Simulated scan of single mutants.
Amino acid sequence: MPPPDRERDAFQYAIWRVVPSVERGESLNVGVVVFCRRRSFLKARTLLDSDRLRSLSPALDVDALARHLDGMVRVAAGDPAGGAVAQLDQSERFGWLTAASSTIVQPSPIHTGLCDDPEAVLDRLFTRLVA
């Protein structure tokens, strides 16, 4: 529980999953993105387990997937190397990063909570859900 002098703010997060074959329905959590509007916080973290991914899909191009996820992390960070989407405001970038799509990387539904330290939330979620 946070100290009484620290204000808690709403945050949202989604898990990024790799779904190599929609038909088989198997997935592997590969990242988390956390957004806290009041603290101007938007950050993502990813981790690829190449061996597990190849066990789900031996033909999967893990290097291309890693580049794709790196681009998504850059978009979250607002890094110009993330392209035009990375230049949008944080709320629009979070919407783009959590939009449902039919690509191999699919976001979970958006979850919400309260926190006093969004960086610590990202660390906790990443450790629990991905790493």
Score class of each variant (00 low, 15 high):
residue 23 E to P: 00
residue 23 E to G: 14
residue 23 E to I: 15
residue 24 R to V: 09
residue 24 R to S: 12
residue 25 G to Q: 05
residue 25 G to N: 05
residue 25 G to L: 08
residue 25 G to A: 11
residue 26 E to V: 07
residue 26 E to M: 10
residue 27 S to C: 04
residue 27 S to Y: 01
residue 28 L to P: 02
residue 28 L to A: 13
residue 29 N to C: 04
residue 29 N to S: 09
residue 29 N to I: 06
residue 30 V to S: 00
residue 31 G to Q: 01
residue 31 G to H: 03
residue 32 V to Y: 05
residue 32 V to K: 02
residue 33 V to F: 04
residue 33 V to T: 07
residue 34 V to D: 02
residue 35 F to S: 06
residue 35 F to M: 05
residue 36 C to P: 01
residue 39 R to G: 08
residue 39 R to H: 11
residue 39 R to I: 07
residue 40 S to P: 00
residue 40 S to E: 09
residue 41 F to H: 06
residue 41 F to Q: 01
residue 42 L to P: 01
residue 43 K to S: 14
residue 43 K to D: 10
residue 44 A to W: 02
residue 45 R to C: 06
residue 45 R to P: 00
residue 46 T to P: 00
residue 46 T to W: 00
residue 48 L to V: 13
residue 48 L to S: 09
residue 49 D to N: 15
residue 50 S to M: 10
residue 50 S to I: 12
residue 51 D to N: 14
residue 51 D to Q: 14
residue 51 D to G: 14
residue 52 R to I: 04
residue 52 R to K: 14
residue 52 R to E: 08
residue 52 R to S: 13
residue 52 R to T: 11
residue 54 R to W: 00
residue 55 S to V: 05
residue 55 S to Q: 10
residue 56 L to A: 06
residue 56 L to F: 04
residue 57 S to M: 05
residue 58 P to Q: 09
residue 59 A to K: 10
residue 59 A to R: 11
residue 60 L to R: 12
residue 61 D to Q: 10
residue 62 V to C: 04
residue 62 V to T: 06
residue 62 V to S: 03
residue 63 D to F: 15
residue 64 A to T: 14
residue 65 L to N: 03
residue 65 L to A: 04
residue 66 A to K: 11
residue 66 A to W: 07
residue 67 R to C: 04
residue 67 R to L: 08
residue 67 R to I: 05
residue 67 R to K: 10
residue 68 H to R: 11
residue 68 H to P: 00
residue 68 H to G: 03
residue 68 H to W: 02
residue 69 L to R: 04
residue 69 L to E: 00
residue 70 D to M: 13
residue 70 D to R: 15
residue 70 D to F: 12
residue 71 G to V: 09
residue 71 G to H: 14
residue 71 G to P: 03
residue 74 R to G: 03
residue 75 V to Y: 02
residue 75 V to F: 05
residue 76 A to T: 12
residue 78 G to N: 07
residue 78 G to L: 05
residue 78 G to P: 03
residue 78 G to E: 01
residue 79 D to H: 13
residue 80 P to W: 02
residue 81 A to L: 12
residue 81 A to F: 01
residue 82 G to L: 03
residue 82 G to R: 03
residue 83 G to W: 02
residue 83 G to F: 01
residue 83 G to M: 02
residue 85 V to R: 05
residue 85 V to P: 00
residue 85 V to L: 10
residue 86 A to H: 04
residue 86 A to G: 07
residue 86 A to T: 08
residue 86 A to V: 10
residue 87 Q to D: 02
residue 88 L to R: 12
residue 89 D to T: 13
residue 90 Q to Y: 04
residue 90 Q to W: 03
residue 91 S to K: 15
residue 92 E to N: 08
residue 92 E to L: 13
residue 92 E to R: 12
residue 93 R to Y: 14
residue 93 R to V: 12
residue 93 R to N: 13
residue 93 R to A: 13
residue 93 R to W: 11
residue 94 F to C: 07
residue 94 F to H: 07
residue 95 G to C: 08
residue 96 W to N: 13
residue 96 W to L: 11
residue 96 W to H: 15
residue 97 L to I: 10
residue 97 L to Q: 08
residue 98 T to D: 06
residue 98 T to M: 07
residue 99 A to Q: 14
residue 99 A to I: 06
residue 100 A to V: 13
residue 100 A to T: 14
residue 100 A to D: 11
residue 102 S to C: 10
residue 102 S to F: 10
residue 103 T to Y: 13
residue 104 I to Q: 03
residue 104 I to P: 00
residue 104 I to G: 02
